[in-house]
């Protein structure tokens, strides 16, 4: 690991100006991702600014009846939060399906969103990777790509975003609040993460020195009828092959409204807007769920090793929506 400086300042604006002057500096929150990547030599910031005590570590109600989650709230605390469990169960379920208890105790809400995408070649400095070393080539496209993207990938990168929490928050219309050199902004979570395009080195739209301070959830009532289903190769402590977060509002057997997001399929949490559109106003039925899933997955482009994700994603969408339609009745 390259030697680096460690800083901790007292306020948000001081921190932002500190890091603005350090082009190779990075924020440190729980450290569960960046410290690993530093040990591997994948990231080598020359300065870490500890922001863990800088942003709120509590969950509070907002004026419009939604909730605001401080960026420093740990994954384990957030999963256990009563409001989240009752009003946004998909988020609690997603958090509890992620990583291990030890990691969830360290990882924060802001840090979880900013995990780097996951790929064995990105993590191995001895192989080409456009994300790590722009222009060096993508090793995964013709290599080991069983865990890689089927949607929204590019010829430069086929990595997937690893977060479970972010998938649930994407389904539930979250906003990400940031402070940066240019002040505060409120970003729909769907816009936070990027598709790789020709700049796979950029995982998000955040500018250097822009700090996530909170995540806000809207007061949408039917989000209490939401769930997260994660498919993985073992019962715990594994990244999703495919995951689905969904919420559904059903009345008299008709879908009034629905939210669907997919994990493990793209460079970002994938909001399944086409499937949502196809379902609004339609009767609840397995056939309709299946048809909607197939519409969403029409654009899927499998690689040599991940074609299984298409039927898997379809099946999990159908199953999750079927479960929600039964439970939400």
């Amino acid at each position: 690991m390259k030697p680096y400086r460690y800083e901790r300042s007292e306020d948000v604006s001081g921190t932002i100006s500190t890091i603005a002057e350090e082009p190779e500096g990075a924020f440190l929150a729980g450290g569960t991702n960046i410290v690993d990547l530093m040990k591997l030599g994948v990231m080598s910031p020359d300065m870490l600014v500890d922001v863990r005590r800088l942003t709120p570590d509590d969950v509070e109600e907002t004026e419009d009846g939604g909730v605001r989650i401080g960026a420093a709230v740990t994954n384990s605390d957030l999963a256990a939060e009563r409001t989240i469990r009752s009003r946004y169960p998909a988020i609690s379920e997603a958090l509890l399906s992620g990583a291990s208890a030890q990691l969830r105790n360290m990882a924060t809400t802001g840090g979880n969103l900013l995990q780097r995408t996951r790929c064995v070649y990105f993590q191995d400095t001895t192989t080409p990777c456009n994300k790590r070393e722009p222009g060096s080539g993508c090793s995964a496209i013709e290599g080991h790509n069983k865990n890689h993207a089927i949607l929204g990938a590019s010829e430069h990168c086929v990595a997937t975003h690893p977060s479970d929490m972010a998938v649930a928050m994407t389904a539930l219309d979250a906003f990400v609040v940031t402070h940066g050199p240019d002040g505060e902004r409120r970003i729909p979570i769907e816009e936070l993460h990027r598709l790789p395009g020709s700049e796979p080195e950029r995982d998000t739209i955040l500018e250097h020195g822009e700090l996530i301070t909170a995540v806000e959830l809207p007061p949408t009532a039917f989000f209490s009828n939401s769930k997260y289903r994660k498919v993985r190769e073992r019962a715990s402590y594994a990244f999703a092959l495919v995951s689905v977060a969904a919420a559904m509002d059903v009345e008299d057997g008709v879908i009034r409204d629905v939210r669907i997001a997919l994990g493990g399929v793209a460079h970002k949490p994938w909001r399944a807007t086409k499937a949502e559109e196809a379902l609004r106003g339609e009767p609840v039925s397995e056939a309709n769920f299946r048809a909607a899933a197939e519409i969403e997955l029409e654009d899927a482009e499998p690689l040599s090793g991940n074609a299984y994700k298409i039927p898997l994603a379809r099946n999990v969408i159908v199953r999750t929506l079927s479960d929600l339609s039964e439970e939400g009745r």
Binding site: V120, H144, R234, S236
Partner: peptide, 20 residues
């Protein structure tokens, strides 16, 4: 192409957890 094992850690090379 490279001649090495690419899933060379225990996050990628799976063994059962207690839950399995």
């Amino acid at each position: 192409r490279f001649g090495h094992v690419v899933n060379h850690d225990l996050a990628e090379y799976h063994i059962p957890t207690n839950a399995d």
